[in-house]
Computed example of a mutant assay.
Amino acid sequence: MRRITRIATVGIASAALALSATACGGKKSSDASSSPSESGQKSAAIAYDIGGRGDQSFNDAAYAGLKKAETDLKIKGAEAEPTDGEGEADKVQRLTELARKGNNPVIGVGFAYAPAIKKVAPKFPNTTFGIIDDTSVTGENIANLVFNEEQGSYLAGVAAAKASKTGTVGFIGGVEVPLIKKFEAGFAQGVKDTNPNAKVLSAYLTQPPNFDGFAKPDLGKAAAQGQLDAGADVIYAAAGLAGSGAIEAASAKGKWAIGVDSDQYNQAGLAKYKDSILTSVTKDVSDSVFNLIKSVEDGKPTTGEIRYGLDKDGVGLADSNPKYKEMADVIAAVEKAKADIIAKKITVKTAP
């Protein structure tokens, strides 16, 4: 049976109170780093990104890795959800609480956790901290789990160009940050290398510091509808939960959608649209989470940059849709592009 601990985030004032209590004679954070979990059982924790569990994409992929660790490694899993409008102090408190409870490793799902991990990790030197999609924060007990998203997105561009009948395809980014621009760059390059005459429409849902573009499906739906009205017949959205709105819009028009992060054809929450999900750019977030947890359980915690690319199947394209499997010309083009990237015959751009 699964046992999950959900940790609700409280306000900044509570965080300050907890920290001041530690300073006034309580157990030091570094002492707590080696404490067992409350039940005495080994445990690992993940703190979710914007959208939380149930986004059918990025966060759910991380959850799958934690669930696998629970089953295969017999550990206890802890989860912490984000809150609306939270700031850095909330993330600091969340990670601190997870570490104090003896969870090891503690994994922040997404680059937004970088400032908080930078503050918290030194206070718990015996705890391994993982962060997905970020290399800006480093330390002896920090593992940076990163991916060559541009490579998987290039393959999506190849597939989109081959599947398109109008010669116009669309890219939707959740928030205009360097990470998501990697998705755009690879996708656009894959499209143009396959069909130089193709048109790529690009749109971003929000600009930092507004990160609603990762969380609100209505924004993704509206952007996709605009691109569909402009002639796009394949839409690729790298927008977390907001991407489900783009998939809905494409399905309503009888056009193709390309999913992201997880194999969205197989996501229960998107079942009604699955026939319109041509493929998905997958990131092996699940295995990256599991592998880090296992390294800690084995007594050899992995730290530093851990990169997942096409050469290690860390990114790729899903082929769950039977309609995709029937597209021999698309599959052949994708496989050739994959082989050429691995052989370094193609260098994929990381910025548009």
Rank of each mutant, 00 (worst) to 15 (best):
R2M: 09
I4E: 05
I12A: 14
S14R: 06
T22Y: 06
G25Q: 09
G26A: 12
G26D: 09
K27I: 06
D31R: 03
S39K: 13
K42R: 12
I50S: 13
G54N: 11
Q56F: 11
S57R: 04
A61W: 00
L66D: 01
D72Y: 04
K74T: 05
G77F: 06
A80S: 11
T83R: 13
R94I: 05
R94W: 01
R94H: 03
L98E: 05
R100L: 03
N104T: 00
N104C: 03
P105V: 01
I107W: 01
G110E: 12
G110C: 12
P125N: 02
T127F: 00
T127E: 03
T128D: 00
T128F: 00
T128P: 00
G130T: 05
T135E: 13
T135R: 06
T138G: 00
N141R: 04
N141Y: 01
N144A: 07
N144R: 05
L145P: 00
E150S: 07
A163N: 10
K165M: 10
T168G: 01
V169M: 10
G170M: 14
I172Y: 07
V175K: 06
E184F: 03
E184L: 15
Q189V: 08
P196D: 15
A203R: 09
A203E: 10
Q207F: 04
G213F: 12
G213H: 13
F214M: 08
D218M: 13
Q225A: 15
L228Q: 03
D229E: 15
D229P: 05
D233A: 10
I235P: 02
A237Y: 00
L241C: 08
A249L: 04
A249R: 07
W256Y: 15
D263H: 02
Q267M: 06
A268E: 08
G269E: 09
G269M: 09
G269P: 08
Y273K: 06
Y273G: 06
I277M: 10
I277L: 11
I277N: 07
T279F: 07
V281F: 00
F290W: 05
N291D: 14
I293S: 03
K294G: 01
S295C: 05
V296W: 02
G299I: 09
K300T: 10
K300Q: 08
T303V: 15
I306L: 08
R307G: 06
R307N: 13
Y308W: 15
K312A: 07
K312I: 01
G314D: 04
G314S: 04
G316F: 12
A318E: 01
A318M: 08
D319M: 11
D319E: 05
D319S: 07
S320Q: 00
N321L: 02
D329A: 11
V330A: 11
K336S: 15
A337I: 09
D340H: 04
I341A: 14
A343Y: 11
K344A: 12
K345C: 11
K349H: 06
A351M: 11
